[in-house]
């Protein structure tokens, strides 16, 4: 074992760095999904579409503003603003006109409404942005790279990948935690997450909280997409690929638990990057293995609260 570390310790260090940035992106997408699920109890399959639309919009807005002479340093703030814009427009639209009509229905019906929405938006994206890969990487390029020493060698990492992605993920995590614990609205959201019936019995305006939470979740999905857009070429189908991993994060984390989502994302991000170094064929299944193992030990998810059984 010690010998293995001697040989591979440096690689493990690299895997940690990669895992962190990968975890950051996983977290940003999954935490919105988890928040929405915690409050609305809807598994929003269209979260993947919001991710994709967030990515496409950020790229389009970025390309447009660059054409107008936007300085490079503004690229990252532009990403964040365009994500907020997408969420603020699409979130209320979807909640008001679609989800609100089906809150009374069965869970499976709610899930399917978002699945239908996902299918529709998949084609809408194609109609708007076409099928050729779109990429706009100013944010990644402008920030440059940093050389990380690796034995006698060195490995260049992009600052965007090494600092911006995990940084924004951490800021989001801390900000969310403070918001949920310190503000009244935040506490109401937590109350609805933990015990919906009791919360509404106490006269909480569920309609407002649902609208707010969903919009917020949509913004987070769009933010995940927007932040991935500088490093990834956008093509049809990216939403479907992304959302399925977020499902696993939500179930592993525990319902509505943002710290759970953070820890799960970290485990999955690290697990995947370690797999790439030592057993690449396992990379795809690592998240699911983690999920199964966690649920074997903690059936309610990492940070999940055991719900009182109704009689």
């Amino acid at each position: 074992m010690a010998e293995w570390f001697q040989d591979n310790g440096l690689l493990l260090g690299l895997a940690l760095l990669d895992g962190l940035s990968s975890a950051g992106l996983i977290f940003l997408v999954a935490v919105g999904l988890n928040l929405v699920f915690g409050v609305l109890r809807i598994i929003n399959v269209a979260h993947g579409s919001l991710y994709a639309i967030g990515a496409y919009s950020a790229a389009s807005i970025g390309i447009f503003l660059s054409g107008l002479g936007l300085p490079d340093w503004a690229a990252v703030p532009t990403l964040i603003l365009s994500a907020a814009l997408v969420g603020a427009i699409l979130g209320p639209l979807i909640e008001r006109f679609l989800l609100r009509r089906i809150y009374a229905q069965e869970e499976v019906v709610q899930l399917l409404v978002t699945f239908a929405l996902f299918m529709i938006l998949e084609d809408v994206q194609k109609l708007i942005w076409g099928v050729q890969p779109i990429h706009h990487d100013t944010a990644m390029r402008a920030l440059g790279t940093i050389d990380v020493p690796f034995g006698a060698d060195f490995i260049p990492f992009t600052n965007y990948q090494l600092f911006v992605l995990p940084g924004i993920a951490i800021v989001t995590l801390v900000g969310l935690a403070l918001f949920l614990r310190r503000t009244l609205t935040g506490r109401v959201i937590v109350a609805v997450t933990t015990d919906r019936e009791a919360a509404s019995a106490m006269g909480i305006d569920a309609a407002k909280i649902f609208l707010l939470t969903f919009t917020f979740g949509a913004m987070l999905a769009a933010l995940g997409g927007a932040l991935s857009s500088p490093t990834a070429a956008l093509v049809p189908g990216i939403g479907a690929q992304t959302i399925v991993l977020s499902f696993a994060v939500v179930a592993t984390a525990g319902l509505g638990q943002i710290e759970g989502a953070a820890l799960t994302s970290l485990m999955m991000g690290l697990g995947r990057s370690i797999a790439v170094y030592f057993e690449p064929e396992l990379e795809v299944v690592v998240p699911y293995i983690i999920m199964v193992l966690v649920l074997l030990v903690r059936p309610q998810g990492l940070f999940g609260v055991i719900e009182t059984r109704r009689v």
Binding site: S22, F150, S228, I238, A240, V276, Y277, P280, E283
Partner: peptide, 24 residues
């Protein structure tokens, strides 16, 4: 020195790239 087959539709190859940078 390395055989990597990332998932079809991947949007992030940074880990694979780090490994390739290290392997030269």
């Amino acid at each position: 020195v390395a055989e990597m087959f990332p998932r079809f539709g991947s949007t992030d190859f940074s880990t694979e790239i780090t490994r390739l940078l290290a392997l030269r």
